[in-house]
């Protein structure tokens, strides 16, 4: 599978988002900076600390995750959607690349963008808030798994979607509420029992929990479960995406 055609697809995907860095990487860094300044600096001083961590530091893993998710998803979904609209998806479908290589190639493009945006936000947080990562390998693993899961979801939506609205629906109506309700800005221990239990069925809560543990060493739930849940999403979404490419669902007649 690691052959030249496959590597070319990854190269193409990375070049695409790097070439459009003003639209792809920079906006997420700016919005994260604003979150850190507004929520961290102004509100943080009033909130104090959560689980012994300064509030400004406590929100950073969630911001990293939000950016990784958004960038990974946007990369694969919009790249496939554009290829479909402009018809050059056919240029790929006629090549010797198979469904697995095509889906993984697109996913890796999204993973690289997701991880890069995560690292940029971490760097910004270090500059603005002097945050230090407790476990770098685990943070990288979490970033990769989360980016992979959402990049794979982006492939699915990119193939399935018929309009740009379909892509936006996931971002605006699913990711955004689930991320905010998953504890980016708070610990679920601060919630009433009912809402705490509701939060436990939100997969993004688990991902934020894992990211927070790897970056800051604190958690609300067992962190190994976070890795398992992220891994499960990776497997399920990647399998569906690969099956769609292999069968030519909505891209072949």
């Amino acid at each position: 599978m690691i052959n030249r055609p496959f590597m070319t697809l990854i190269q193409r995907e990375v070049w695409r988002f790097l070439g459009l860095y003003k639209q792809t990487l920079i906006p997420s860094v700016i919005s994260s900076g604003l979150y850190i300044i507004v929520f961290g600096e102004s509100l943080g001083s009033r909130i104090g600390s959560i689980k012994g961590i300064e509030y400004i530091h406590y929100i950073i893993p969630g911001l990293v995750l939000m950016n990784a998710i958004n960038n990974a998803y946007q990369n694969s979904s919009s790249s496939i959607m554009q290829a479909k609209f402009l018809k050059f998806i056919d240029d790929l479908l006629i090549t010797p690349l198979n469904g697995l290589e095509l889906s993984i190639g697109y996913m890796i493009g999204g993973i690289i963008r997701g991880v890069m945006s995560g690292i940029l936000v971490i760097s910004l947080a270090w500059l603005l808030a002097d945050v230090m990562i407790v476990n770098i390998p685990l943070t990288i693993l979490n970033l990769i798994l989360i980016s992979w899961a959402f990049s794979a979801l982006g492939v699915i939506v990119g193939i399935y979607g018929q309009t740009w609205d379909h892509i936006a629906v996931f971002t605006n109506f699913i990711f955004m509420p689930l991320t905010f309700l998953g504890g980016v800005f708070y610990s679920i221990d601060m919630l009433p029992e009912f809402w705490r239990n509701i939060s436990l069925v939100n997969p993004l809560y688990w991902m934020i929990n894992g990211m927070r543990y790897s970056m800051l060493g604190v958690h609300d739930s067992p962190p190994f479960l976070s890795i398992i849940i992220s891994g499960m999403f990776v497997i399920v979404f990647s399998s569906i995406a690969t099956l769609m490419f292999t069968k030519g669902y909505k891209i072949k007649e």
Binding site: P5, T8, Q11, W15, L86, K87, F88, L92
Partner: peptide, 19 residues
């Protein structure tokens, strides 16, 4: 149908890469 993200030289080079 063309990959409009690249200039035509690189677009062709990428197409060759897929093979």
């Amino acid at each position: 149908s063309f990959d409009f993200f690249f200039n035509i030289r690189d677009m062709l080079a990428l197409q060759g890469g897929y093979y």
